[in-house]
Design a protein around this nucleic acid. Structure first.
Lengths: 111, 111
DNA sequence: ACAGCTCTTTCACATCGCCTTCACGCCCGG
DNA sequence: CCGGGCGTGAAGGCGATGTGAAAGAGCTGT
């Protein structure tokens, strides 16, 4: 079972929870999330992610991982608006890490 | 004895109550409901459900679980129109959880 | 054994949601 | 400018699920 701030991923039960609420993830989305979370703070290349989440080797030019990272970000953003979990490292891949969206936020900052 | 909002399931007595009224369930319907409710918020695959509610291993392509989920939903919907209990997770299975039919707009949580 | 009933399984068709792919836009470094 | 890398929305094909109905199996009372 993987913890990441208010996010909890349970590979064995095929379920991910945000503040205890079950996230509605598709099979691909879930596997991608699991693989990202499993690797903790490390940067993972698209090829590696594709290999483990798709059980196949990625063809050159395939954008599937990008698309699914986007979908995951969408759902995680909806569930936990103030946190960012998937970070892009241009030219390298993605890195999973729970970080607050607005690190410098103070009360009178709005607008 | 299992409570789920206004629904109450008593495996020992082979009876399910909605607001105290007895639900007319067939044997399969009841056993399926018990197994779903027993697992609380977790997602349960059709194979697992079939195994425990039918006492046999599910043959590939068997749609019995789908059909009985439908029947259960029908009866639960009739008894408690504003609540949804059985949620589908495409590619994974079903999840039992009492939720209002018209959510006020919560996260990207289960359907 | 038969009739009548309910429960269960199977089937066919409808609908839904997932996955892939494409297209376009933006940003940035050369 | 130009090209690479990435974000993002949308379309189409297709597999997964929803659903109504018919067929099959069992149960009960006579």
């Amino acid at each position: 079972m993987l913890h990441a701030g208010r996010l909890e991923v349970r590979p064995a039960e095929s379920v991910a929870l945000a503040d205890g609420r079950v996230l509605a993830l598709s099979v691909r989305e879930f596997r991608l999330l699991v693989e990202l979370a499993r690797r903790g703070e490390r940067i993972v290349s698209r090829e590696q992610l594709y290999a483990v989440a798709w059980d196949a080797s990625m063809r050159a030019g395939d954008r599937s991982v990008d698309v699914y990272v986007h979908k995951l970000r969408d759902k995680l953003e909806t569930a936990l608006p103030d946190w960012r979990f998937i970070h892009t490292h241009v030219g390298f891949g993605y890195r999973f890490s729970p970080e607050p969206s607005h690190p410098f936020h103070t009360a009178a900052t709005g607008r």
